[in-house]
């Protein structure tokens, strides 16, 4: 009886962790950037999930692709790919890959997580420089930036009151960063083909100079169990921009 109860609790935990993330989900965003005080559409951001199977295991492949619209390609072409391979049950990452092409600048990055979750082996390469290998100690539970979005989507946000925060630790550019997501309240925002949706409004802050201003980096997630990101506003050293949800599929 005790065993059945334990299994039951374990299975319900897995359901809580992954119930919201479908394995063939696509979210397409319009990426705009503030130029001369006006938001201008410059790129499309596609977030996808799929199943990756190896001989022994099954992983959830999380990816985010940034591609400039063709009118911008001749001036400043961007083709960025961020990927993370995570455990479908716990969203614990095993492998993270980043492939950046931004107006001629290239960067590749790969983190292989130690199975114990306390270190990563990183490999990075910038432009024509040689590959740099490194081992970075991390706190157990530290995730990459892509996994963070899905972790947040799997979190129970209904219990959070305005002003309360959820802390996360992420690894970005081979450095550990503390990220805090503070609940600001609920708002109704446009969610592309989903129409208008009630969303949780969360403020993102981190111990880095890459995010500027207080409550200037924001994310709106639907209040339903899927917690779909509908709008993301960011303020970084080079400017201000936003991602607006355009289309969804396979949710």
């Amino acid at each position: 009886m005790k065993k059945i109860l334990t299994i039951g609790v374990f299975l319900s935990f897995i359901r809580i962790c992954t119930g919201q993330i479908s394995p063939n989900e696509t979210l397409i965003f319009d990426g705009s950037y503030e130029l001369s005080g006006m938001m201008t559409n410059i790129a499309q951001v596609t977030m996808q999930t799929s199943v990756m199977k190896t001989t022994n295991k099954s992983y959830l492949h999380l990816s985010a692709e940034v591609a400039t619209f063709n009118k911008w390609d001749s001036f400043f072409k961007i083709r960025d790919l961020y990927e993370s391979y995570v455990d479908p049950g716990t969203l614990k990452p095993s492998l993270y890959k980043r492939n950046v092409y931004e107006g001629g600048y290239t960067k590749t990055e790969k983190y292989s997580y130690n199975p114990a979750g306390n270190s990563i082996k990183s490999e990075s390469k910038r432009k024509n420089n040689p590959v740099v290998k490194n081992t970075v100690s991390i706190q157990p539970g530290a995730v990459d930036v892509i996994t963070l979005i899905y972790k947040l989507r799997s979190a129970n946000l209904s219990g959070l009151k305005a002003g309360q925060s959820i802390p996360y630790i992420i690894v970005f550019d081979e450095k550990q960063l503390r990220v805090n997501l503070k609940m600001l309240g609920k708002e109704i925002v446009s969610a592309g083909n989903l129409g208008k949706r009630e969303c949780y409004k969360l403020s993102i802050s981190a111990n880095t100079n890459k995010l500027k201003g207080a409550d200037k980096n924001l994310i709106w997630l639907t209040t339903d169990s899927k917690h779909i990101p509908c709008l993301i506003k960011f303020s970084i050293p080079v400017g201000v921009g936003q991602l607006s949800l355009l289309k969804t599929a396979g949710i």
């Binding site: 790919l81 890959k97 199975p115």
Partner: peptide
């Protein structure tokens, strides 16, 4: 870019199998 994406996934599969071996 599409080719790079495909290659990346193929490499990832091998890398994940190597990690499982650890």
């Amino acid at each position: 870019f599409q080719l790079e994406k495909q290659n990346s996934q193929q490499e990832a599969q091998k890398e994940l199998e190597e990690l499982e071996g650890l």
